[in-house]
Amino acid sequence: MAFSAQESRRYARHLVLKGMGGGGQQALAQAKVLVIGAGGLGSPGIAYLAAAGVGTLGIADNDAVAVSNLQRQIVHSTAGIGLNKAQSAAGFATALNPHVAVIAHTARVDADTAKALIAEYHLVLDGSDSLATRRVVAAACAALAKPLVAGAVTMFDGQLTIFAPHLGGPRFEALYPPEAEDGDLPSCEANGVLGPLTGVIGTLMAMEAIKLICAIGEPLIGRVLVYNGKAARFSEFNY
C-alpha cells in the first residue's frame, strides 16, 4: 500500500528512522492490535499505537469512565465521565489519527468471548486489572498463537513481559501459577498508584508491540522488565 502525502508527513520521523523506515510503517499499517482495558495501562498504549499508525486498533472495555480514573487514564476527559471506556478511548484515538480504523468492544472479555474476539487481531495488549481476565486472555492468545504484551502496576512499581509460547517463550502459568488469585496481588484501589507510573509501563507496552509488528530488536519474551519508580531503576529477570 502507498501512503498519502498527509500520511507521509505524519509518519516522517518513522520513515527516516534506520531499522524502521517504510517497511516498518507498512507493517504497522497492516497490523490489527487489540488493547484489553482502556485504563491506566491501556491509555498510553492506545495513544501511542494510534499515533504510530497501527492499521486497526481494537479497544475492549465494558467499564464506564469515573472521576477517579482521570488521575492516570489520559485518553478520557472530565466531559466523558459516565461514558463506556472503550467508546471514550476510541473517540480519543480517532481524533488523534483519523487514518487508523478504531473498533470499540463494549462487552466484557471472559471465557465465552475472549477467543472469538482475539481471533480478529494479530497481537494483544492486556492492561486489565483482574487476574481472572488476564488468565482467560492468555489462554486464548496461546491457543490462537497470538503474542500477548502484558503489563501490571501498583503504588510506585510496574512490570511488563510478552507471553508468546508459539515463539518458544514460557506460558502465562510460568509467571502466574494456577493457584494465584486476585486477592494474592496488590490492589490499586486499596493501595493506590502514582499516575505517571501507568504511563511508563503502558508506553513500554506500546513499544514492545511495535517491535513485534516491525521485527525490531529483541522483544521481552521470557523476560520481565521491572520498574522501581521510587529509585528510578529498571531491572529484569528471566522466567
Rank of each mutant, 00 (worst) to 15 (best):
A2G: 13
F3T: 04
E7A: 14
E7R: 09
S8E: 14
R9F: 06
R10T: 04
A12T: 11
H14V: 04
G19P: 01
G21D: 07
G21F: 10
Q25Y: 12
Q26I: 06
L28F: 11
A29F: 02
I36D: 11
G40A: 06
G42I: 02
L49Q: 09
L49D: 02
L57F: 03
A60Q: 08
D61M: 09
N62P: 00
Q73S: 06
G80Y: 04
N84F: 10
Q87R: 15
A89S: 13
A90V: 08
T94M: 08
N97I: 01
P98F: 03
V102C: 09
A111D: 01
K115A: 14
K115H: 04
K115Q: 15
L117V: 00
V124E: 01
L125P: 00
V136P: 02
A145Q: 13
P147I: 11
V149K: 13
V153E: 02
V153L: 02
G158N: 08
T161R: 06
L167I: 12
G169T: 12
P170W: 03
R171N: 10
L175G: 08
L175Y: 12
E181P: 00
D182T: 01
L185M: 15
S187H: 04
L197P: 03
I201M: 08
T203E: 08
K211M: 02
K211P: 13
P219D: 01
Y227R: 03
G229K: 11
K230Q: 12
F234M: 07
Y239N: 05
